[in-house]
């Protein structure tokens, strides 16, 4: 085409210059406090080199293409399909999206919610593109791990997990379309009670919960709150609850049948005192703050954040206030950044 089009002169400079005040004028659209990019420790990546969809990353034939890229047939150009950072590991070139939905991997510890009950399995929402499966054969049946699964179990399937229940499980395998199959064959997995649920972004593209060695641990809380369990699901679903002592403590594997009692699948909450509830709220606030500020969410950071929050709270005389927005939150962040 022999037509030359002049670029619209005003458009781009106005956008760039007036950017900070522009956002506040466009009322309602909140750009502050978003999830920010969180690189994991494992992957090597080049910071600050963003690629956007349709951009050619490289046309060197030596690279193999990984997630987030595609190659047009008949050419060696690797083109990005998401907006993110380039990751090079050995000869593999992939693009890590800035934000994406959680994709399950084998071995992930996830917190999920039961969405459907079918004849021999449950379908669990784990924040992935597809619902995950939890087969009846993959849970611990009360009465012992070696108990045979009977038809009665199938008929009474709702006595174990019903719609809306929360559970912590591990991804056992992946099916061909990428959906996960879960299992709860361990004492540390199973139905969740006595606590509060929160949802942040998972390890989809960065930000939020990262995969670490320990995703579940107990905090000895201050102010008489007692022990609080924290479960960080890799999919970004988090559960904070009051720690309930299992009678008898540690059991050997031969004695597992006895410890899996009927109360494992009970939906009844225990009594939780106000101090414990306060501390649970405080931990929840800490995690929210970590996510807003772009820190990674793992045991280490949550503990530091919790200690900082308690310190900041103690400085203020008077009533304990767990709210971490505004000035208090800033102080916590400062303390965290120092460490």
């Amino acid at each position: 085409m022999a037509i030359t089009i002049l670029a619209p002169a005003p458009a781009e400079p106005i956008y760039r210059e007036v950017d900070p005040s522009e956002d506040s004028d466009n009322g309602g659209a909140d750009l502050e406090g978003d999830h920010e990019m969180r690189p994991t420790k494992r992957a090597k990546h080049s910071t600050f080199s963003i690629v956007t969809p349709g951009e050619v990353v490289t046309d060197d034939a030596q690279w193999m293409r990984g997630h987030g890229t595609y190659i047009q047939p008949g050419s060696t150009e690797i083109i990005a399909t998401v907006a993110g950072t380039i990751q090079k590991t050995n000869k593999l070139l992939s693009v890590r999206p800035l934000r994406a939905r959680y994709t399950p991997e084998i071995g992930d510890l996830v917190v999920g919610r039961i969405m459907e009950v079918q004849s021999k399995r449950w379908r669990v929402d784990v924040g992935a593109p597809n619902l995950a499966d939890l087969p009846l054969a993959a849970i611990n049946l009360p009465g012992g791990i070696l108990r045979k699964r009977t038809e009665t179990d199938e008929l009474e399937i709702r006595t174990f997990f019903s719609e809306g229940d929360l559970l912590v499980a591990e991804v056992q395998s992946l099916r061909q379309d990428g959906s996960a199959s879960l299992h709860t064959r361990s004492l540390k997995y199973g139905k969740l009670r006595n606590g509060v649920f929160m949802s942040v972004t998972g390890t989809g593209g960065g930000g939020g919960v990262v995969r670490a060695r320990r995703q579940v641990w107990t905090i000895d809380t201050m102010h008489g709150g007692g022990k609080v369990d924290v479960i960080l699901g890799v999919n970004g679903y988090i559960w904070i609850s009051k720690h309930i002592e299992v009678a008898g403590g540690e059991t050997a594997i031969t004695r597992m049948e006895e410890s899996i009692s009927a109360t494992v699948y009970s939906s009844q909450n225990e009594y939780i005192g106000p101090e414990t509830r306060t501390e649970i709220s405080r931990i929840k606030g800490v995690i929210t703050l970590l996510v807003e500020q772009g820190f990674r969410v793992d045991e280490d950071m949550v503990m530091k954040g919790y200690e900082a929050a308690v310190t900041v709270d103690d400085e203020d005389l008077g009533e304990t206030n767990v709210y971490l927005g505004g000035a208090k939150g800033k102080k916590v962040v400062d303390l965290l950044s120092e460490k």
Partner: peptide, 30 residues
């Protein structure tokens, strides 16, 4: 022809927005 060229200009603007956001996210991450 004019429409197609206008679309290219739109792409440049949208791309700038996406990049600015990405850079902001990376800078803000700790």
């Amino acid at each position: 022809a004019v429409g197609v060229d206008g679309c290219k200009q739109v792409r440049a603007i949208l791309d700038g927005v996406a990049r600015a956001r990405g850079t902001k996210m990376l800078e803000g991450s700790r």
